[in-house]
Amino acid sequence: MSERKVAKTDAEWRTELTPEQYAVCRCSATEPPFSGQWYRHKAAGTYVCAACRTGLFASEAKYDSGSGWPSYFQPLIRAAVSLHQDETHGMRRTEVRCAGCDSHLGHVFPDGPKPTGLRYCINSVALDFIPAPD
Rank of each mutant, 00 (worst) to 15 (best):
A43W: 00
A43M: 06
A44G: 06
A44R: 15
A44M: 13
G45D: 05
G45A: 09
G45H: 10
T46R: 08
T46Y: 05
Y47M: 02
Y47H: 03
Y47G: 03
V48A: 13
V48G: 03
V48T: 12
V48S: 05
C49Y: 07
C49R: 01
A50P: 05
A50Y: 10
A50W: 09
A51I: 08
C52D: 01
C52H: 02
C52R: 01
C52T: 04
C52Y: 06
R53G: 01
R53S: 13
T54S: 01
T54C: 00
G55Q: 14
G55S: 12
L56T: 02
L56P: 01
L56W: 07
F57R: 03
A58T: 12
A58W: 06
A58I: 03
S59C: 04
S59F: 09
E60P: 02
A61I: 00
K62F: 07
Y63Q: 04
D64N: 09
S65N: 11
S65K: 10
S65I: 08
S65H: 14
G66H: 08
G66T: 03
G68V: 06
G68K: 12
G68W: 08
W69Q: 08
P70Y: 13
P70L: 03
P70F: 11
S71V: 06
S71G: 06
F73D: 14
F73G: 08
F73H: 15
Q74A: 15
Q74G: 03
P75D: 07
P75V: 14
P75A: 13
L76W: 11
L76P: 00
I77Q: 14
I77A: 15
R78M: 14
R78H: 12
A79Y: 06
A79M: 05
A79L: 08
A79Q: 11
A79R: 05
A80T: 03
V81P: 02
S82M: 11
S82T: 05
L83R: 04
L83P: 00
H84P: 00
Q85K: 09
Q85C: 01
D86C: 01
D86L: 01
E87A: 11
E87L: 07
T88P: 00
T88N: 01
H89D: 03
H89A: 10
G90R: 05
G90C: 03
G90F: 04
G90D: 02
M91P: 00
M91K: 00
M91D: 05
R93D: 01
T94H: 06
T94Q: 03
E95D: 13
V96F: 15
V96E: 14
R97P: 06
R97Y: 08
C98R: 04
C98T: 02
A99M: 10
G100C: 04
C101I: 05
D102S: 02
D102M: 05
S103A: 15
S103E: 06
S103G: 15
S103D: 05
H104A: 14
L105G: 04
L105W: 14
L105A: 05
G106H: 14
G106Q: 12
V108E: 08
V108S: 09
V108Q: 12
V108L: 12
P110H: 05
P110M: 04
G112Y: 13
P113I: 00
P113R: 07
K114N: 14
P115N: 09
P115H: 13
L118C: 13
L118T: 15
R119S: 04
Y120F: 15
C121K: 11
C121A: 07
I122Q: 07
I122D: 09
S124W: 12
S124N: 11
V125T: 08
A126Y: 11
L127E: 11
D128G: 15
D128W: 15
D128F: 15
